[in-house]
Nucleic acid binder design. Structure first.
Length: 420
DNA sequence: TCTGGGGTCCTAGGACCC
DNA sequence: TCTGGGGTCCTAGGACCC
């Protein structure tokens, strides 16, 4: 049996743990740049606030209902996530951390225990140890566990924990689940299924395998088998290294000049370089893209450029150099830019790197330099030491984060300031 | 005025090989 | 009218996830 443990309204719950004054108030957390709503407490959902709603369209409601608004604080959420996952690891030797707020737990070894009771023990312990409320669904496959989890949260009777084991319970759950709500069925496939009179998960399990494969590909067929109780998706306990890494942001205020774009590109290139080093990879291709604001009624421009490099790299300085060349080749004056980003691809492990015969990249020197840089920044705070190309920390193009909460769990200084 | 930022996998079609 | 039979690799685009 597999359990899916999912944190309720995760970002909003994180804000509440350290701020008791907002525990019974409606809370929303905004996307980067304070753009739109990405997390809502139960009270905010009840007010009808939608996922992805632009914040500027919400200001009246915020005032009217006293909604507590927060910029997203990924330092805090990442640390809280670690605490939750560590707690979950106490309950099983086999666990897959699926996202920042979800984990699959293999409960196969506990068949003799009462699963319902065990799930409750997990739920209560996570809350006691971290302050984060979770929902738990238990079933024979990952896809069914997802369905159980969803119903666990919806049903008053289940109250956050649902075990689907008996065939009649599984069938009832499938009949209560619309195709749109199945994990792995997105908008397009849901519309297609509805057009074919398949409206519930149960309907889908009755379809013929070859028809499913023809229209929903092999991915859809696996999904249908999982719904029927046949496991097709393994628990992935070790996360495999990323094949692409991207860092991109919208600007806090519109950008026209090349100089600001260069600073932003340098910053994102160095973030990509850091992520590469963290997973022990080097990149052979570096892409830079820039775009105007697609929502605005102004002249639009989008372009990107990919540079293949002779020797794979993961040094800030190399990445920044290549990214700058790419940027200059696509920059056109006269547009108002909203966003840019850096993508690194063709990744290879750094210890099996193929060196170029004609390239004097000084790989060893850069490796030592980056190790020192990472050590210093790890000890004294990120961007303590950085390339001058990244510009100053008060640049106007930087993200808007006007309602940021303190990093309660990772920065002592933040907490002291907050208390004062 | 103001609309996020990451990822993965699959398929079809083209170019190429013998 | 008829015009082989395998393959591989790459890319773009589409679908999905959080």
């Amino acid at each position: 049996m597999i359990a899916l443990v999912d944190c309720n309204n995760f970002y909003a719950s994180c804000e509440r743990v350290f701020n008791p004054a907002i525990r019974n108030k409606p809370v929303v957390v905004l996307s980067n740049n304070d753009g739109c709503v990405i997390a809502r407490s139960a009270e905010s959902k009840a007010l009808g606030i939608k996922m992805g709603e632009p914040y500027f369209m919400l200001k009246e409601q915020v005032k009217q209902h006293g909604i507590e608004v927060f910029s997203s604080n990924y330092t805090l959420y990442g640390d809280m996530s670690n605490r939750v996952m560590k707690t979950l690891a106490e309950f099983t030797p086999n666990l897959e951390v699926y996202s920042i707020d979800e984990s699959f737990l293999d409960l196969g070894h506990f068949y003799s225990k009462d699963l319902q009771q065990y799930a409750w023990e997990i739920k209560n312990t996570v809350f006691d140890w971290t302050g984060i409320p979770v929902g738990i669904g238990v079933a024979k496959t990952k896809t069914l566990a997802k369905i159980a989890n969803r119903l666990a949260k919806k049903s008053n009777k289940a109250n956050g924990v649902l075990v689907l084991q008996e065939p009649e319970h599984v069938k009832a759950a499938l009949e209560r689940t619309e195709v749109d709500d199945i994990w792995g069925i997105g908008r397009q496939h849901a519309r297609f299924l509805r057009n074919n009179n398949i409206t519930t998960a149960y309907d889908l399990t009755l379809q013929n395998d070859s028809w499913v494969k023809k229209h929903l590909t092999i991915v859809g067929l696996r999904l249908v088998k999982e719904l029927r109780g046949e496991p097709c998706l393994e628990l992935e306990e070790v996360s495999s290294p990323k094949k692409n890494i991207c860092t991109s942001r919208s600007f806090g205020s519109p950008v026209k000049n090349l100089c600001s774009l260069e600073e932003a590109t340098a910053l994102y290139a160095s973030k990509c370089a850091y992520k590469l080093r963290q997973q022990g990879s080097c990149a052979s291709a570096i892409t830079v893209f820039i775009t105007t604001n697609t929502f605005a009624n102004t002249k639009q421009y989008y372009n990107s450029r990919t540079i293949q490099v002779p020797t794979p790299v993961n040094s800030d300085l190399h990445l920044i150099q290549y990214a700058s060349i790419a940027l200059k080749s696509i920059y056109v004056e006269g547009y108002i830019y909203k966003k840019c980003g850096v993508i690194v691809s063709d990744l290879a492990p750094e210890n099996t790197m193929q060196l170029s015969l004609f390239d004097g990249a000084d790989t060893g020197k850069h490796r030592d330099l980056m190790k020192t840089l990472d050590n210093l920044n790890g000890k004294y705070g990120k961007s303590m030491v950085k390339s001058a190309a990244q510009g100053k920390k008060d640049a106007s193009w930087l993200l808007k984060s006007e309602q940021l909460s303190p990093c309660y769990t990772t920065k002592l200084n933040d907490v002291i300031v907050a208390r004062l």
